[in-house]
Computed example of a mutant assay.
Amino acid sequence: MMRKRSTWRALCQLLTDGTDITHETLDTVGRPGAGMLRSFLVVSGVLPERDERFHAFEQWIQRTAQTVIDDADRRSFIGFARWRHLRKARSHSRTRGQFAGQRRELALVCALLHMLHTHGLAVRSADQATLDVWLADGPAERLRVKSFLQWCRANGACKTLAFPSRPAHSLPAVFLIPEHERTALLGQILDPQQDIDPGLRLAAGLVIIYGFRCHEITRLSLTDIIVAQEVVLIRFGADPLRLPEELGEYARQTAARRSITRFGGAAEDTQWLYPGPLHGHPISSSALSKRLAAIGVRPRAVRGVALGHLAQQLPPPILARLTGLAPSTTVRWNAAVSASYARNLPSLNASPE
Rank of each mutant, 00 (worst) to 15 (best):
H23S: 12
V207L: 06
P315C: 06
L200T: 10
L325Y: 12
E105M: 10
M36I: 00
H23F: 04
A311N: 01
I318M: 09
A326S: 15
F54V: 02
P316Y: 03
D17V: 11
E24Q: 14
E52G: 13
S289M: 04
A126E: 02
T130K: 04
L14N: 03
F77W: 00
F148V: 11
A107Q: 15
S221Y: 00
A34D: 11
P327C: 07
H117F: 15
V68F: 02
L348Q: 12
T25Y: 04
P315L: 10
G276S: 05
L47V: 04
A306I: 06
H279Q: 07
L200P: 03
P48D: 05
R50Y: 01
A336G: 05
R75W: 01
A204N: 03
L131Y: 04
I196K: 10
L288G: 08
E181R: 09
R124K: 13
G205Y: 06
G280V: 05
S259A: 15
R38E: 13
G35Y: 08
T323D: 07
L186F: 11
G264D: 04
G35T: 11
L41E: 08
R153Q: 14
R90C: 08
L15D: 03
T183P: 00
F77T: 01
T323I: 11
A162C: 03
I177F: 01
S289I: 00
L171Q: 03
F54D: 01
A326C: 09
H55G: 00
R235S: 12
L322H: 05
Q229F: 11
A301E: 12
M2G: 02
S147A: 15
E245K: 13
Q128H: 05
H85Y: 15
A100T: 14
C152V: 07
A162F: 09
H119P: 00
G324F: 13
Y250G: 01
F54I: 02
L131D: 04
A140R: 07
G248W: 09
V29E: 08
P178C: 09
Q102K: 10
Q128F: 04
G156K: 02
A72S: 10
A81S: 05
T130A: 09
M36K: 03
C152H: 02
L348R: 14
Q193L: 02
T183Y: 01
L292Q: 11
A301M: 14
L161I: 12
A56V: 05
L47S: 06
P315T: 06
Q194V: 07
G296H: 10
D71L: 13
T323H: 07
A81N: 01
P139Y: 05
H117L: 07
A266K: 14
V145T: 05
T118P: 06
A81H: 00
T19I: 14
A72Y: 00
G280I: 08
Q271A: 13
S286P: 01
R291T: 01
A204Q: 04
S165R: 14
K146C: 09
S170W: 02
R38K: 12
L186Y: 10
P48Q: 01
A287V: 05
E268V: 13
Y274K: 06
R235I: 13
R291H: 07
S39R: 04
L112A: 10
R144D: 13
R219E: 10
E181S: 09
P240F: 10
T270M: 11
R50Q: 13
L185E: 06
A72T: 12
L106M: 14
T223V: 09
